[in-house]
Amino acid sequence: MASIHLTVNGKPYAVDTDPQTSLLSVLREQLDLTGSKYGCGEGQCGACTVLLDGKAQRSCITRVGAVSQRLITTIEGLANGEHLHPVQEAFLEAGAMQCGYCTSGMIMSAVALLQRNPSPGVGEIVNFMDGNVCRCGTYPRIVSAIQKAAKVASAASAAKGAGR
């Protein structure tokens, strides 16, 4: 047991746990951030995806001891108050979910993708997202949601640029 300092969604936390414990367990059991889901425990389904310094990471195979210096973002930290992130908004509008259990991980992966490339083509979306499983089969809707979010974001940044 050790006290580990974490920064999650901009907030500092100190947790007493074995550094070998998975980040997912700590998020869910100790910090009560249950938006990140357990799906397979071996990084194969993406339901547990969080952002580490802006990059997509499978929290079920990430040891908590390894991430104390990193900025962790979970689905709970994505919206700005009641103002949803464009990717969240796009998932809602595209009806890109059925049971919704994969949705947190899908959204976090999509956010990471758009940070890397703000306007990915379908091929890049499919490649990047291929590690995230949706058993309900809403993949085509998720692809459209990501495209939609990319458009919104690029329109917003264009507007910002024009305003300068």
Binding site: G35, T74, I75, E76, L84, Q88, G95, G100, T103
Partner: peptide, 13 residues
């Protein structure tokens, strides 16, 4: 649209 969709995209559900 899913009536409580917002809870699903925010991880609140």
């Amino acid at each position: 649209l899913k009536v409580d969709g917002r809870d699903f995209v925010t991880g609140r559900h």
